[in-house]
């Protein structure tokens, strides 16, 4: 038993991200009912599911914007320390929570750029003030990142002056500026006009090709099918099915998943 635990922890240490049996309730409502996931270096995992299936909550529990009531989370071999209080997990150290969050890049559905700062200021905010790195270095890196996501000419503009697609690319660059070990995307294209979705997906695809470990909650079936190497289908707070896109999008998929993608082709 003890040996099992040790082997188990060894896999958790080797993986980029390891989530064990996460549970989360909001009051009476049980949103996550025991979810586990192992992400290896370079994995691109698409998380699909209808609204209310718990996929966003799952992502928010990983970077501790919500604290799961039960379960373990390991990021790059480091376990997040929890204590039980009235049967629910509470992080032991807020310092560790900050440290783990700095290692996990989060991209939000509604971009959440800081509206009073220019795009460049948005990008260097974390590296300069959280990671305490030299400003000049951070600016040079930030400019390279803006170049990469194709909005270098917008570096002195404010978020409100950008289109939704540009804002989301800036938000991705802001996360990348922290040099995260894993990137979490929470429906990154759901708030965008259809013609702006492509530019954001292109940036995400190139990130995936560079070997970034990514968890992507999305409704973009083409991304799930063509870019990710693993697809997870969530239903009612649990993982309904899980596999490579080739298997998931074949006749071998679970009936619930087939029904789910059927509603998209509808």
């Amino acid at each position: 038993m003890l040996q099992d635990q040790q082997i188990d922890n060894a896999t958790a240490t080797a993986n980029r991200l390891s989530v064990r049996n996460i549970r989360k309730s909001f009051g009476e409502l049980e949103v996550l009912r025991g979810i586990s996931l192992e992400a290896h270096d370079g994995d691109v995992i698409s998380i699909l599911g209808s609204s209310g299936s718990g996929k966003s909550t799952f992502l928010r529990c990983i970077n501790l914007l919500e604290i799961a009531d039960e379960g373990e989370i390991w990021v790059d071999g480091e376990q997040i320390q929890m204590v039980k209080k009235q049967g629910k997990n509470i992080p032991v150290s807020s310092r560790q929570v900050d440290h783990i969050r700095a290692e996990l890049g989060m991209v939000f559905q509604s971009f959440n750029l800081w509206s009073h700062m220019t795009i460049l200021q948005n990008l260097i905010e974390g590296p300069v003030h959280v990671l305490k790195r030299p400003r000049a270095e951070c600016i040079a890196e930030a400019e390279a990142l803006l170049e990469k996501v194709g909005i270098a000419e917008k570096r002195h503009a404010y978020p409100a002056h950008l289109s939704g697609g540009q804002q989301q690319r800036a938000a991705i660059a802001r996360s990348l500026a922290m040099k995260p070990k894993v990137m979490l995307f929470d429906e990154p294209t759901s708030a965008l006009d259809p013609e702006l979705v492509g530019e954001v997906l292109r940036v995400m695809r190139s990130l995936a090709e560079e070997g970034m470990t990514m968890l992507v909650v999305t409704h973009e079936m083409s991304f799930a099918r063509n870019v990710s190497n693993r697809v997870i289908f969530m239903r009612e707070g649990q993982i309904d099915s899980d596999g490579a896109p080739e298997t998931m999008f074949s006749d071998a998929a679970s009936p619930a998943f087939r029904q789910f993608i059927g509603s998209f082709r509808g």
Partner: peptide
């Protein structure tokens, strides 16, 4: 102050006085 801008700051590891001072 929009809650989502605070959340973005938390998600990069800001908290406490730093979060108040910067965001």
């Amino acid at each position: 102050v929009p809650a989502r801008e605070i959340e973005a700051a938390r998600s990069i590891g800001m908290s406490g006085f730093l979060l108040v001072r910067r965001i």
